[in-house]
Design a protein around this nucleic acid. Structure first.
Lengths: 214, 214
DNA sequence: TAGATTGTTAATCGATTAACAATC
DNA sequence: TAGATTGTTAATCGATTAACAATC
């Protein structure tokens, strides 16, 4: 185990490894090589070995990686060996869609509360959760030790919601609103922007008036 | 205008610029500097100037960039100066959420058809569209010149849907299923994985059993 | 022993940032 | 003219990949 700081690119690949390892585990595969992982995940095997080696010597030369052991280790690294509670704000279609993913997220990530600022949405049932008004957020964060917030409100509300979350003590935010959130440096923010992804795809389409690329 | 190949990082920033420029335009701001753009978008001004300079000399020294002109140029670069038709497969919650974004995507990207393999979903009305069965996909792609596909089906169906899309002549895919799609190199695939984003956030939480980071 | 595969160092590649002449 | 800001080159920084000794 070395003590460099780990780049975000590395951290973002860990859940990808974990996902495929979980699949292997379900198929009762005991061992996997960086070669095979790389082939399945479209990554360079050397990169995978290097990524993992940042955190420890998890593999065995000549053999590969023990699937169960590596799963356990990656969970520890990602800190999901304990349950992490998540709050979602914005009970629209997207919020609803994400809360369904609770099933996928048996990796110890759990959406435990859903909030919305609109009277109309409060009280609505989404899976096992009841949509709560925003002024319950502070209390719920404390009571359930909620550490991550997901924002699925319209862009013009996003910053306000983020501020409320941070005020309440949330440590990290996953933002789906198409806006750049401002926050103090100790708050981790990841943004996921569907419209940006889609528009950038268009660039790679063939032809058009002037075909500059590829 | 130079003729290097443009990196994906650059292309992914263009829609971000566009989004803020559109906002400026609505506020009737005529001109903007790389400095101000950088400040708002959390990017280095030099990077913004460099990004834009790949495609042409859009700015004016001492003045900055003309908002309307730059919007027009970025639209051309992204090839959204013409309407791009999009098909969505998977009429679940996420699919429904995305199809609502049609409003946002007045930038000439339009979801013109929604498909689902489940009998139960076919015929359902989502906004102005009726969910169609999968075997209509080929015909619709051709008829409406659909060029981009969005996949919002469960992971185990994703590859099959991608194959069908590619077979039908779709050129680029935005994949929301948590799986790595295999496709020929001329097909552009962007993946957006909510679970991966969320799990990687956990890494940055403070404390835990052993606190290696930050 | 022979074959496989890791962990790690060195080489390469690419992206970001700083600096500044050109010029509005 | 003085101040602002671009476009671009050079410097820096960081991430990926290749190569290989160590070893199971």
């Amino acid at each position: 185990m070395k003590s460099e700081k780990i780049s975000e690119a590395v951290v973002r690949r860990l859940p990808v490894y974990l996902r495929y390892l979980n699949e292997l585990h379900k198929r009762e595969v005991a061992t996997v090589s960086s070669q095979e992982l790389g082939q399945k995940l479209d990554l360079n095997p050397a990169q995978i070995r290097k990524d993992l080696a940042y955190f420890g010597d998890f593999g065995r030369k000549g053999i590969g990686y023990d699937v169960s052991y590596l799963i356990e280790k990656i969970r520890q690294i990602l800190k999901i060996d304990q349950q992490i509670n998540v709050a979602l704000v914005g009970a629209g279609n997207l919020g609803q869609a994400l809360s369904n993913y609770n099933a996928y997220l048996k990796d110890n990530m759990k959406i435990v509360a859903i909030f919305d600022s609109s009277e109309a949405k409060v009280g609505k049932q989404i899976n096992t959760l009841t949509v709560q008004p925003m002024d319950e957020l502070g209390r719920m964060v404390e009571e359930h030790r909620i550490r991550i917030g997901i924002i699925t409100v319209p862009d013009f509300e996003a910053q306000r919601v983020a501020d409320t979350m941070i005020e309440a003590g949330i440590e990290a935010i996953l933002n789906f609103a198409p806006t750049i959130l401002k926050a103090p440096p100790h708050i981790r923010i990841h943004a996921t922007d569907f419209t940006t992804d889609l528009l950038s795809l268009a660039y790679y389409l063939e032809g058009g008036k002037d075909d500059d690329n590829e």
